[in-house]
Design a protein around this nucleic acid. Structure first.
Lengths: 159, 159
DNA sequence: TCGATCTTGTGATAATGTAACAGAGGGCGG
DNA sequence: CCGCCCTCTGTTACATTATCACAAGATCGA
């Protein structure tokens, strides 16, 4: 389980490591880690927060890296398709993946106060839901699991 | 667990009962079950499928019940807020609730072939995810759980 | 009946996401 | 080196999903 993101940590390293890991993965798999894609990943890593495609586009625009929606969406598609980022359906927004490259069924803990997002592992192919799905004859392939609530910092600070 | 919707059943009764249950609930709670709201609920009950807001709006328009987006969205908001319907985030679409009025943490099984949706119960406040959330100090209030795969009918018929 | 409140009608617009096509650049066989 | 193919980028236009604001109608209790 990867519930860092709420805990205090060396965030500079967090970004550097994230980018490095993805860069290596791309090299290993023959994927092109272009400037736009790198920059989008950095933006996503910046806050352990979900960013909307248009937030990202604004940043890219400021930096002269592209100005039209497809630029942002293509970079995001690339990152999502290759498991370097995830889409949070509930927010129509995106976060960097906590363990890039590993294929997994991610679950997310979203703080409704500070908007931080932590990633956890929740393989829905086991557990109670999977069991009743199996009983009904339903075969689960993918799952969106997004829990909303209060993170430790916010739940301490105020109700 | 309520995984009907995939199983064969008396669907006429299914709609009637759904509407009746909601009507009674509204009477009991002093909520107005207006024609638009009733019709939207019927449309949602019609197919155990998720319908987009604009699909619904089209039907309402044909029937002279309203022609602008807010009409559909307001009816849907009413149904969702009172637990008579749910939004499927992954599809930007809506389904009727399988057990109207009961407060619960619904999970959904979405068939990627026939688009049918079944509702199941998956209280995320227990189970492995809840446990690691608790360890991280995160308090889960609500959860979106949407599993995608093949329903029994489609998985039998073809891959 | 009056007023408070909830509901609906409507036009406008915001936010999110895609399609389609032209051009830039790089690798690679000729 | 040239031309071809492929991927990535730039840009216009558009599609889909969702909300705001305000006026008018319906409902209900005092």
């Amino acid at each position: 389980m990867e519930t860092t993101g709420f805990a205090r940590h060396d965030h500079g390293a967090c970004i550097r490591d994230g980018v490095t890991a993805v860069a290596e993965h791309c090299r290993a798999e023959g994927l092109q880690f272009t400037p736009v894609r790198r920059r989008v990943l950095e933006l996503l890593l910046e806050g352990h927060r979900a960013l909307g495609a248009y937030d990202i586009l604004d940043r890219l625009r400021e930096e002269g890296l592209g100005s039209q929606p497809p630029v942002a969406y293509r970079a995001l598609d690339f990152l999502v398709k290759n498991g370097f980022a995830h889409k949070i359906e509930r927010l129509n927004a995106f976060v960097a993946c906590a363990c890039p490259g590993e294929s997994h069924m991610p679950a997310f803990l979203i703080c409704r106060k500070c908007d931080k997002v932590a990633e956890a592992e929740a393989d829905m192919r086991e557990g109670k839901l999977a069991q009743s799905a199996a009983e009904a004859g339903f075969h689960i392939e993918r799952a969106v699991v997004e829990a909303e609530g209060l993170c430790p910092n916010c739940s301490g600070a105020a109700a």
